[in-house]
Amino acid sequence: MSVSNTNVNKSVSVFAPASIGNVSVGFDVLGLAVKPVDGTLLGDVVTVNATTSNDNSLTVIGNFADKLPSNKEDNIVWSCLLLFNEQLISVKQTPVFVAITLDKKMPVGSGLGSSACSVVAALASLNAFYAKYHNFSFSENVVLKMTGQMEAQISGSLHYDNVAPCYLGGLQLMVPDENVISRILPSFDDCYYVMAYPGIEVSTKAAREVLPTTYSRSDVISYGQNLATFVDACHRQDKSQAFSVLTDVIAEPYRTDLLPKYKASRDYLSSQGALAVGISGSGPTLFCVCDSEKQAEQFALWLQENYLQTALGFVHVCKVDDVGATEI
């Protein structure tokens, strides 16, 4: 590796937004990036600084820093740095020493793509740093593959439903083509998404372990029909049709018992006219789709009073984040 005294003022920061994995109807194959309408940064920020030190470093700050391993070798951002450097070497580029700071704004085990936020922010900031100061960058597809590799390391299986929307923005459909990986779908820009995190943690691993290993033929048919109908409705911009089939037959029936107050909240919001209600990712965050900002604000207040369970909980009224990872 190389180091130079002229590097100390070189810095890049990237913000990576929260996402709704699965979006109910597309288990492991759909993801939607979201952003609060009030401008709150719901996601993680990673800053890469050049350093005069002869070593790399990682500092973790933020509201949820204490939820992460104290040992840097166990932090996913450190693993991202190691992977990125391996990729650099594989294409005959020389890594430089850097000082990385992770601002952990996203709660761990929230169902909002917390690990994806860290992974995407880390790899996107490293790529932007090299592009800006070393005249080299990996293609979007290569970076996306690296984010998937890191997510698989965390959850035990390769799925892009959080990292793809987090990195690319919008509503993303994962496709079985490693040269494409993800296709953006037309989303419904006039909809509001109320995100309610109750303040408790549910691990992705635990949420996957409650799922059955086999499904009935009727469930498989329902899943395929609902997902196909949703994708078709997105392209036709048929909002009524799209959200009428936003039903989870794969995971929600088995995860409901892991989420206190979820079923009662879902039933209430549905009865009050929500377009759709579901579990964000593997939970415990609930998402609710609304037709208007007024309705979203009303539901947000109700969820604040009825769904949150600890002081760490929060509710945000969001829109679709069409941008994804952004240099700030």
Rank of each mutant, 00 (worst) to 15 (best):
A122L: 10
L123S: 09
A124H: 10
S125W: 00
L126Y: 03
N127W: 02
A128L: 11
A128N: 04
F129A: 09
F129V: 00
Y130G: 11
A131V: 03
K132H: 07
N135C: 07
F136N: 11
S139N: 12
E140K: 15
V142A: 15
V143R: 05
Q149P: 06
E151R: 04
E151G: 06
Q153A: 05
G156N: 03
S157L: 12
L158C: 05
L158I: 14
L158E: 13
L158M: 15
L158K: 12
Y160C: 04
Y160Q: 03
D161M: 05
N162C: 00
N162H: 05
A164Q: 08
P165A: 00
Y167K: 09
L168D: 05
G170W: 01
L171A: 09
L171W: 07
Q172Y: 08
L173C: 12
V175E: 03
P176T: 10
P176H: 03
E178Q: 07
L185Y: 06
P186H: 11
S187F: 14
S187G: 14
F188D: 06
D189I: 00
C191Y: 06
Y193W: 13
Y193T: 04
Y193G: 05
Y197G: 11
Y197E: 04
G199F: 10
G199V: 10
I200M: 04
E201N: 10
E201Y: 10
S203E: 13
T204P: 15
K205Q: 12
K205L: 02
E209W: 01
T213H: 14
T213S: 15
T213A: 12
T214R: 03
Y215H: 11
Y215G: 02
Y215D: 02
S216A: 13
R217K: 13
R217I: 07
S218I: 03
D219R: 08
G224M: 04
Q225C: 01
A228V: 09
F230I: 06
V231T: 00
D232L: 12
H235G: 09
H235T: 10
R236T: 14
Q237T: 13
D238N: 11
K239I: 13
S240K: 14
S240Q: 14
Q241T: 14
F243K: 12
F243W: 15
V245K: 11
L246Q: 15
L246F: 13
L246K: 12
T247C: 05
D248G: 02
V249Q: 07
I250C: 13
E252S: 01
D257G: 11
L258T: 05
P260L: 10
